[in-house]
Design a protein around this nucleic acid. Structure first.
Length: 124
RNA sequence: GUAGUAAAUUGAUUAGUCGCGUAAGUCAACACCGAAAGGUGACUUAUGAGGAAAGUCCGGGCCCCAUAGAGCAAAGAUGCUUGAUAACGUCAAGUGAGGGUAACCUUAAGGAAAGUGCAACAGAAAAUUACCGCCUAAGUUUACUUAGGUAAGGGUGAAAAGGCAGGGUAAGAGCCUACCGCUUUGGUGGUGACACCGAAGGCACUGUAAACCCCAUCUGGAGCAACGCCGGUAUAUAGGGAGGCUUUAAAGCUGCUCGCUAUCUCCCGUUCUGGUGGCAGGAGACAUGUAGCAAUACGUGUUCAAGAUAAAUGACUAAUCUCGACAGAACCCGGCUUACAGAUUUACUACUUUA
RNA sequence: GCGAGCGUAAUUCAGUUGGUGGAAUGCUCGACUGAUAAUCGAGUCGGCACUGGUUCGAGUCCAGUCGUUCGCA
């Protein structure tokens, strides 16, 4: 199953926002919550008030690309963890300063945090 | 050379790695399901967003509402002429009016002599008027009153009853005359809007229709989340098909009249949910010829180039230049409107210089 | 994607047939009180979302633009 599974319905997003945790990056805010499916699911959101369709699409593509790259390049077993992720553009930063590297760091940090936490739980 | 006007085209490029949608092919290798065929995945090849894809402002295809029908009313739209078109509120060529030295640009541009309404404040008066004035006559208190004539001048206002000059007069006045405008009318040219030339009238008929309205032309409604098909679940209501009955009452088809449907019996069948068609060969694109001033029409040849369903074009590395604007298809076409860094081409105008 | 509506003081709303845009709450000052509230009096605050057009004159009529709200699964 190589294709990325996505969140689709409104209540799924609401669950992640209400019951999950979040971590702040400089350009991306990540919300996450554990699910019982055994694989990850992804959702991306950009507000319509920030920009028009072309720029919003670009943000989505960059975030999706980063997610895939991290899955490939690192050995952290993120795929098997079974989390729902929702990535949201941080409204405080300009869209003109969109860059691949910063988003990459933001996402990587949160993933490391999640993994460490999971290891601790296993040890206990 | 400088400044400008109009029209058209274009909307960064190249290489490598990883990744995405669709279509076709292959199971040789790898993984899974299956007895196999085959399927999922995988691999290979091809292909993959605009001039506005946007706004949703008009028109049409397609489709359902009865095969959406007839008449009247209501409501809405358009409004110089001729032509183009499937159609249009669009386009082309002209006419009038306005602007610009010019190339050229702008223009919702029918009717106020069918009727109604409105024109605040100011002003005498906002449509048949006389405040201050001017003139004549009478009276007397000699600077006023009364009666009449007049509309040149003043003031008000966005707008004041043809303009200007001369004659004329008690003072004045199209009262008379010339020129200009206006109205009516005759001729000529033009398919026509209209233009030009002439005659007469003697100036009436203020503005507003993007106020109601009148005239002419046009419009049935809803929209692909339309609509069709298949599977699962479900079996109370909606619907479809076949046959029969009555003309009375109620209901629906926007208000009315007609007309139509439906009621009774039998058969199929339902809210919900998933898939699939609709859905990319079309008023198509490119080249070219003929007709036409042009919009466009007709013919010939070549060609087929996105089709998703939470929604596909991105990232990184390297290089070049002018350092990259506005912006993302969602049933499809023809327009309009709005946003837009820069680059290129063609035609034309004004000014300056040189020959 | 499709279809409707609304933009007026700091806030919530009026504004008729085109003719100098109003109310309530708020804010400021004064009076009343030993002081505060309530009450009374006075004041404050508008290029009527934007750009054009029609008109002598547009909040109002017409066209376009921008923002915003709602409905259809």
């Amino acid at each position: 199953m190589k294709r990325i599974k996505t969140l689709k319905l409104n209540y799924e997003f609401k669950n992640v926002f209400d019951k999950g945790h979040y971590s702040l990056g400089s350009q991306v805010i990540t919300h996450y919550r554990k699910n019982k499916l055994g694989h990850n699911r992804l959702g991306i959101g950009v507000s319509t008030k920030l920009a028009k369709a072309v720029k919003r699409n670009r943000v989505k593509r960059v975030i999706r690309n980063c997610y895939q790259k991290i899955n490939e390049e690192y050995n952290y077993n993120i795929e098997g963890l079974g989390y729902d992720f929702v990535f949201i553009w941080n409204k405080n930063s300009d869209l003109s300063e969109l860059s691949y590297k910063i988003i990459y760091k933001d996402i990587l940090n949160t993933f490391r945090y999640i993994e460490n936490k999971a290891k601790k739980d296993q040890n206990q």
